[in-house]
């Protein structure tokens, strides 16, 4: 399967051409690949390198730095649960325990059905709504075990109604 469809590829190539320094698009290209494929495979890194006219290693140096570029396969939805001080001080750890119980996985794992990957994240900038988590860029705050159950259900339904 191609990493990117023809249309996305030509759009990105056009943007790269418009930049005086193509390298500055590296995060954009990696995010574009991730948006289509869920994660960035080795082939994705090589495609980005080709687009940006730098070596795959130079792309990989950047790709492996950022936490939210996934260089390994993830589930269709990635849950990032905040473990920084505000969420932590308002029951974040209980939410983690609940998520692990519900999903039957621990941090870093993906559910067997490939639906959810559970990852920690540092502060989401939702300290006023602690504890908080994000699911594929969608933010959920004021989490309680009941709210988590509801969110998981909704997120799951969104993929397979």
């Amino acid at each position: 399967m191609d990493v990117l469809d023809e249309k996305t590829l030509s759009e990105l190539a056009a943007r790269v051409r418009a930049y005086p320094y193509p390298r500055e698009m590296v995060v954009d290209v990696l995010r574009a690949i991730q948006e289509r494929r869920g994660w960035v495979s080795d082939e994705g890194v090589e495609l980005a390198a080709q687009l940006l006219r730098i070596s795959p290693l130079e792309v990989e140096e950047v790709a492996t730095f950022y936490d939210k570029i996934y260089r390994r396969p993830v589930g269709r939805k990635v849950i990032h649960l905040c473990d920084s001080v505000c969420c932590f001080s308002r029951g974040g750890e209980d939410i983690l325990k609940h998520l692990e119980k519900r999903l039957q996985i621990t941090l870093g794992q993906t559910t067997p059905d490939g639906m959810f990957t559970l990852l920690p994240t540092c502060c989401l900038g939702a300290c006023g709504q602690a504890p908080a988590m994000s699911v594929n860029l969608r933010l959920y705050g004021h989490l309680t075990p009941e709210a988590v159950d509801r969110i998981l259900e909704e997120e799951r339904r969104e993929v397979s109604p």
Partner: peptide
């Protein structure tokens, strides 16, 4: 074709 990968306390010097 040789560089720095990863970050924090898992910085890795190697190839793609």
């Amino acid at each position: 074709d040789f560089g720095v990968l990863g970050s924090r306390d898992r910085v890795y010097f190697g190839r793609f």
